[in-house]
Design a protein around this nucleic acid. Sequence first.
RNA 1: GGGGAAUUAGCUCAUCUGGUAGAGCGUUUGCAUGGCAUGCAAAAGGUAACCGGUUCGACUCCGGUAUUCUCCA
Length: 874
Amino acid sequence: MQSANEIRRQFLDFFRSKGHEIVPSAPIVVKNDPTLLFTNAGMNQFKDYFLGNREPEHSRIADTQKCLRVSGKHNDLEEVGVDTYHHTMFEMLGNWSFGDYFKKDAIAWSWELLTDVYGIPKDKLYVTVFGGDATENLPMDQESYDFWKEFVAEDRILMGSKKDNFWEMGDTGPCGPCSEIHVDCRADEEKQQVSGKVLVNADHPQVIEIWNNVFMQFNRQKDGTLVPLPAQHVDTGMGFERLVRVLQNKQSNYDTDVFTGTITKIENITGKKYGYTDTKQDIAFRVLADHIRAIGFTIADGQLPSNTGAGYVIRRILRRAVRYYYTYLDYKQPLLHQLMPVLAKQFEGVFPELQQQIDLVSRVVKEEEEAFLRTLDKGLKKIDDIITDTKNRSTLTIDGKAAFELYDTFGFPIDLTRLIGSEQGLHVDEEAFTAEMHQQKTRSRAATALDTDDWVVLKDGGTDFVGYDQLAADASILKYRRVSAKGKEQFQLVLDVTPFYAESGGQAGDTGLLIFPNEQVAIVDTKKEDGMIIHFADSLPENVLVPAIAKVDSAKRAATEVHHSATHLLHAALRQVLGTHVAQKGSLVNDGHLRFDFSHFAKVTDEEIKRIETIVNEKIRENIPVVIKTMGKDEAVALGAMALFGEKYGNVVRVVIMDAAYSIELCGGTHVGATGQLGYFKITSEAAVAAGVRRMEAVSGGAAEQYINEQLALIAGIAAQLKNAKDPIKAIERLQEERSQLEKHVESLEARQLVGIRNELLTKDEIINQISFVGQMVTVSSLDSLKKLCLDLKSHLNDHVIVLCANIDGKAYVAIGVDDKVNAARGLDAGKIIKEKVAALIKGGGGGQKSLATAGGADVSGLVAVIETVRGML
RNA sequence: GGGGAAUUAGCUCAUCUGGUAGAGCGUUUGCAUGGCAUGCAAAAGGUAACCGGUUCGACUCCGGUAUUCUCCA
């Protein structure tokens, strides 16, 4: 039996032998594309070639691409693991022709690979071709049909609908018919009963599509018409996991050696056995085997779990995995991180990025698991309360609102609530739960509602970016549009020539001015979208057709460049001081400061920070010229340039060098001319952002100078307050020490004073009707002391009624204590006495308990009457 | 970006509707045992995140700030 690794190798070898260039997988995490969080198809990284925005370096390419799908028509996260063939992360094998070969070769090669190389019996295969569509006026794909006829019996060539066999990238753009290959994996007796023909494209688990060949031959215009493309392309995708399942003759993707390694490991860890069935326990095995791949490779590509965007998707996948092992494998500690080494080893030869960062990834996963297990623990406590409450209300329905609160506020999974409820014979009010969920979604959408007008196109063409060399340029507007969010209106402008740097690689977008003959428009930000440089403005010029001078705010740009160059110096210094495991995990550079996230497993000590600062400042004083070159990627790597995990680089890269022996980085940002321009560098903070990831913030240039001045002013201020003590720190320590001693002293004095008053009051005890009565005016400093005094007296007198009155800062205060026995025998209640009798006498309010109550009021003259009134009640 | 929640002793957390801030673990001390594991007893430890308001009285109610958690986008 061929192993999965051999099968993958054979695919790549086969297409290499047909003249294809084999390229690495693009990162699974997509950056700088707001429409896509993850790579979800093999062609993603080649989109620009099909759109004609970029020229491919090879006309024939093949690869295996890491993809992730967590939503879509057939791929809901909650379904993964339940069946035997859906996945979150999967590999897509693909071969591409960019204006090179077309239908004939693509069809012949796919047949050759499947039947000759892989040896799939021909009578297991069916193919589909596009059958035409009358409403679109599209003919049937006769060409493909004819090419297939050479290999396949005609009754195995099926006609497909537009839905299944016509592929489009979007509403407009390249599109064309496609041809799929399906495999019938059923047993012979089943095949005799029902022909595989009718099961193709019918969601049968054993009759499955394994390969899709898309033939891009049209371009769809905005008006919906189709124009033949000048260059025709081939885009194919073969699901690797399915292919392996077919070749290894298994019923389920999870029975192939793509997954058995991790499943065996899970068996070892949990002591449970995988049983190939649909029990919850077996589903849990599949969920873990699937999810661990998605989690491992996304983190290796630099995306940490978080509470927004792509990071939130990873967090959800990870938590679903935890939920399954926690509930169905009865394993209550972190498990996923233990699988990571097995996975990394398995993919070492294909996707080495996981093995290279195995410590970091395992650590991040473990920490994330621990955090969620804590969340579960807290939720379990809360759900106990909810169940008790439900039972107390003598109903079997758990309040939907309560279930939602548990989910929404405490992150407790709703399916666990259902499960635990059902163990107690309860069910969740699903309708109310869904209603709450709906409200939450509506609220969020309303808050992020973005109203975008259509582009108003003035001129065709692309943008020429000149910002590396110039800070001003003559420019005219190519197109613009209005965007409004939450009542704020903005305009986006695209220029034919621009010196404005769009936010990228952590460097903030430029701001500046568009200077027209009669007016100026402020550019408040610059960002990239779909490869366009978009300038944000709060208003439009009167006449959008007039050329302008586009002028970048040069002071701000310069300050930003200082921080960007400082980031490179810092990165190199970190690797020198902490070790070469330090890799960039995120970066932010603007005119005010820089922020740099990097992998490292311990707090950076004060001493290390000093050494890092020293190195960077030495490099600044060396005044090293910053050399920027474009060169081949291989050449750059050979020079020792640092490239980032999870970044996709073209074959020609921009390299920033600050002393070839010190710092060489691939970077598209803008920099100072020589390091001396940085002036000074200072780290302002160091902290953890996630397991194994630290964050440093620093300032350089003018910002550093300002920072130092502020710090010095602060110290001067402190010293002045301390009367310029020689050692301010010691002076503060002494002050704190003195303060706490004084506090203790005052406390004990007061306590002693209260004891004195108490003893004196005890001598004034009168017996009235067998009740020990104390009613006196006292002098104390606070209501609290009055209360304490009353409590103290209570513990020294049996069968007591105590009334203490005080004038504190001109306000009247009363505390009344009644012995429990007196309360029971005579019905005297301190709280009631205060409310009903005392409060009115002193023109105030009050209350308390039966045995002790307090009141306060404005009228001090009423206090004598208070004592007499209570005496009268005995 | 929007909603919800949490913040109390060194740690983990109680304190039902406003009315005397507690427990377990840990720490210290003493006692028991030749020593250790341990057992018993006692003590110390609090600006209830921070700021403001309502109230006779606020850990508790209201507003703001900070940090953390969580759901949605």
